[in-house]
């Protein structure tokens, strides 16, 4: 299955604030994404999932910087590139065209004073140079692809529901047929029924366009529905990675086990359990013991 060259390879990514480079927020994170596959990054808030995703396209805030690591991107045409070495102009050609991103809050990530049609068209004009009639037809076809009536192109974001806005975000992100889609908790703010629709839509699009998808979430239910590969992060580090089957059915790391144990199930069979950090104390004492032995 992994015969195809990976689309994206993160190698030893570390992120730290510029002022205190010793304090690593993300430590030596490496994983890869294959075309047509979904890699889910799971973790609690503050575990560094979003930072990792932002660092891929060089979108980290100015106070933060990549202290080490490579972001190797290979779209199959122009060979392997290290995105962390590119300048802004080169990155701009990739953002939106080859790698696209969907953000968490559909309410705040659209511009309220521009029609959704205009916002979808923006990247088409920039990257593909579409204009006039051709642009309008493309926008209409994108809207119908994500399940919004074509005549809503002239609507403003406040005239759409949360689910529709997230669909608009998806239409924007797939407009230039990117080969990698980064979705940062795209369904967290939505209702369960809408969430199920959006997940199905993303899964369909991924298969149809052979996109690689990096999907960030904290919900193991969502992971079970759409992931191929799973990466579990804890306090800036990857604690476990593997195929969905492997991680969900046979978790190896105590943190993955604890996190899986505290997800409530719909049948009510599993007792509610708060997350258990006992393993953390244990592993720390082990590390200390190991350190003491040589001295």
């Amino acid at each position: 299955m992994n015969k195809v060259a990976p689309l994206l390879q993160l190698q030893g990514i570390s992120i730290a604030p510029k002022n205190t480079p010793a304090r690593l927020l993300v430590k030596q994170v490496s994983f890869s994404i294959a075309p047509g596959e979904t890699t889910c990054v799971v973790g609690e808030s503050g575990s560094g999932k979003s930072l990792t995703a932002l660092s891929i396209m060089g979108l980290l805030s100015k106070q933060l910087c990549l202290t080490s690591g490579q972001v190797l991107f290979n779209d199959g045409h122009s060979g392997e590139q290290d995105l962390s070495k590119l300048d802004q102009a080169a990155l701009r050609k990739i953002r939106g065209a080859k790698i696209a991103m969907i953000f968490q809050e559909p309410m705040t990530s659209l511009n309220p004073v521009l029609t959704v049609g205009y916002q979808i068209g923006e990247s088409l004009t920039t990257h593909l140079g579409l204009k006039g009639e051709a642009l309008q037809t493309k926008i209409a076809s994108l809207l119908s692809m994500v399940g919004i009536p074509e005549n809503r192109a002239n609507s403003y974001p406040d005239e759409l529901s949360g689910g529709q806005r997230q669909r608009v975000m998806i239409a924007m992100s797939i407009a230039c047929e990117p080969c990698l889609l980064i979705a940062d908790e795209p369904t967290t703010a939505l209702d369960v029924t809408v969430q199920a629709q959006i997940l199905t839509l993303l899964d369909e699009l991924k298969t149809r366009m052979n996109m690689g998808m990096l999907f960030i979430t904290h919900d193991f239910g969502v992971v079970a529905d759409i992931a191929d590969q799973v990466v579990v992060m804890f306090r800036g580090e990857i604690v476990e990675a593997g195929s969905k089957q492997q991680v969900l059915q046979h978790p190896q790391h105590p943190y993955t086990k604890a996190l899986l144990a505290c997800v409530p199930d719909a049948e009510g069979k599993k007792p509610l359990k708060p997350i258990d950090y006992a393993w953390l104390a244990e592993s720390q004492t082990q590390v200390q013991a190991q350190r003491k032995v040589p001295s």
């Binding site: 369960v192 029924t193 969430q195 199920a196 997940l199 919900d219 193991f220 239910g221 969502v222 992971v223 079970a224 529905d225 969900l248 199930d265 719909a266 049948e267 009510g268």
Partner: peptide
């Protein structure tokens, strides 16, 4: 009661809500 509704949802809307719980498909 919660048990009754989860076991035998009567209304189509309840059924669609229950079907939309993430992770159901995999189970």
């Amino acid at each position: 009661s919660v048990e009754a509704v989860y076991q035998q949802p009567q209304h189509p809307y309840t059924q669609s809500l229950l079907a939309a719980i993430p992770g159901k498909k995999a189970q």
